[in-house]
Amino acid sequence: MLLKRTIPVAIAFVVGLWFAIQYYVPTSFSERSLTWASNWAKILLGFAYILGLYSLVHVHWQKIRRGQPGYGYSLLVYVGLVGTLVLGLSGEVQTLVDIATGKAHHFADFQAYSTHDKPIPNFSSGFDWVYNYVFYPASATMFSILAFFIASAAYRTFRARTIEAAFLLIAAIIVMFGRVPIAAAVHRAIPDVADWIMANPNMAVKRAILIGISLGTIATSLRIIFGIERAYLGGD
């Protein structure tokens, strides 16, 4: 009980309270402590990625092991993952081998970053290739596909049945139309109206929602610090 519940709650209390107060006590020690903790959080984030890796690998391994329908696609996840890791970390493996054997190896010299600890100017590594020709195009395409689904959903659901729905519809049409060059050709005020909607009513609502979310976040943070909210500890 002490190790499993009391100490974690105490850690959250001490760390949370310290960093809530630290902002208002700007001594050199408190500022250094913020720098330390920020770096520590980054390191923990790095370790957390390993948990994510395990989760994805485990899910797809179960599909492959059981021969579930579509398990071939899970193999493609492995191809993408292993390929990217090999290209990105082969230099690190080379460095490890160099340290272990005491001799310099060159099997990963095509990777600029890791073998030399810093990027070489104008050197395009295999990892860059994966980013430029696989990751970036796929990301941009995935996000752009959503334009069609959002537009299609809007076409089916947008109906100006009430005055509120009419406001929503008109604002959406003005902002969409105001963002294309032909709008200024139709009437030069349309892009200005679209900009005005974004900069005034829209910004006011975003501001109000941000204030509401922030008050909720502060309340939740206080509940965590004082041990009222313990969902992060999980079960038992």
Binding site: L76, G80, G83
Partner: peptide, 25 residues
């Protein structure tokens, strides 16, 4: 889609290694 998921995780891991673990630890 599945290739993208694998590459996306691999890319994040490599970045996490260089930016978080290697640089900070």
């Amino acid at each position: 889609e599945h290739i993208y998921v694998g590459v996306g995780l691999g890319y994040s891991l490599v970045i996490a290694w260089f930016q978080y673990i290697k640089a900070e630890l």
